[in-house]
């Protein structure tokens, strides 16, 4: 036991616990690997299909009719899709930053026990998770309409829907998701670490950044990724809360889908995939170089 405790102390000094070496893993490594291969294959099969079909000469159907770059040419000539992608990224980026900040703070508040209203807050936070998105969309449309009328009547301010109403709404549905994920990494957090730091004279600010943040970092990142993805994928809420000229990739695709999912849309999806893959590889490469 003493050895284990000593180990643990060392771990703590590094600020985080690390998994023990592979050979100690009590679980069938091969089964885990097999499962991982299976899941990643499952995740990427439709993606591969999508990429392949962006090069397919056939306009409709699943038949391969030869290689073409036609859809990419059309895509680059299509300013609407490019603009829509940029708008989507703007909305997703901004709403993720705001929602991650607010959501993480809320998770920290929830972690503190015994304040009045904690339980109601905790339960209430699940409402935005369980609300069907069409209901949220309709309710926000009704709310903004009402609010704008009041602003006009009382203050003479003439407000209208725009990009900002979309971002506000995305933050509203993202906060809870971030809080849930960050809360997960805060659960079972050893409060004594904080107390010890405080006893040793660390300010709450120092305690947070030196002790707590490193531990919840992956949770915050997870929450941010989740919120970015949710925002990028949202159609209904965006549709109802946007103003004229605000056109995201989903609203654009939805408009076009009446007719067909065109190979051009496969092409822009492939480019997005390529973009994100390049980013991942670049940052990994940079990280390796820094370590070398």
């Amino acid at each position: 036991m003493a050895k284990i405790l000593a180990d643990k102390r060392i771990e703590t000094k590094h600020g985080r616990s690390r998994p023990v070496a592979k050979r100690h893993m009590p679980w069938g490594t091969w089964a885990l690997t097999l499962n991982a291969i299976f899941v990643y294959t499952f995740l990427y099969v439709p993606i591969i299909v999508l990429v392949l079909f962006s090069f397919n000469a056939a306009k409709v159907g699943a038949q391969w009719q030869g290689f073409t770059l036609q859809w990419y040419n059309e895509l680059f000539a299509d300013a609407r899709l490019g603009d829509a992608l940029w708008t989507s990224l703007k909305i997703a980026g901004l709403s993720t930053i705001i929602a991650t900040t607010i959501g993480t703070l809320a998770a920290l508040a929830l972690e503190k026990r015994g304040w009045r209203g904690r339980k109601a807050f905790d339960t209430g936070l699940y409402l935005p998770v369980i609300i069907p998105d069409v209901v949220m969309a309709v309710s926000l449309l009704g709310f903004f309409t009402l609010a704008f009328r009041q602003f006009q009547a009382l203050l003479g301010l003439n407000l209208a829907m725009g990009l900002w109403t979309v971002i506000i709404s995305h933050v509203a549905f993202n906060i809870s998701f971030v809080t849930v994920v960050v809360g997960t990494s805060l659960a079972n957090f050893d409060r004594r670490l904080e107390e010890a730091a405080a006893d040793l004279g660390a300010t709450p600010w120092q305690t947070f950044w030196k002790i707590k943040f490193p531990l919840i970092g992956p949770g915050v990142l997870g929450g941010a990724l989740l919120s970015f993805t949710l925002s990028l994928d949202d159609f209904v809420v965006t549709f109802f809360t946007r103003g004229p000229g605000v056109n995201t990739l989903t609203t654009e695709v939805y408009g076009r889908i009446k007719k067909s999912i065109s190979p051009e849309i496969n092409a822009i999806s492939s480019l997005m995939l390529l973009g994100s893959t390049i980013l991942v590889l670049t940052s990994l490469w940079m990280q390796r170089r820094r370590q070398a």
């Binding site: 990427y44 439709p46 699943a62 695709v253």
Partner: peptide, 20 residues
């Protein structure tokens, strides 16, 4: 690697299943 497939449009992903 888990997230990357989801940075495409969800409708596009559903339709990819239909194509398959």
């Amino acid at each position: 690697a888990v997230m990357i497939p989801f940075w495409t449009n969800f409708l596009v992903r559903i339709y990819a299943w239909k194509v398959l």
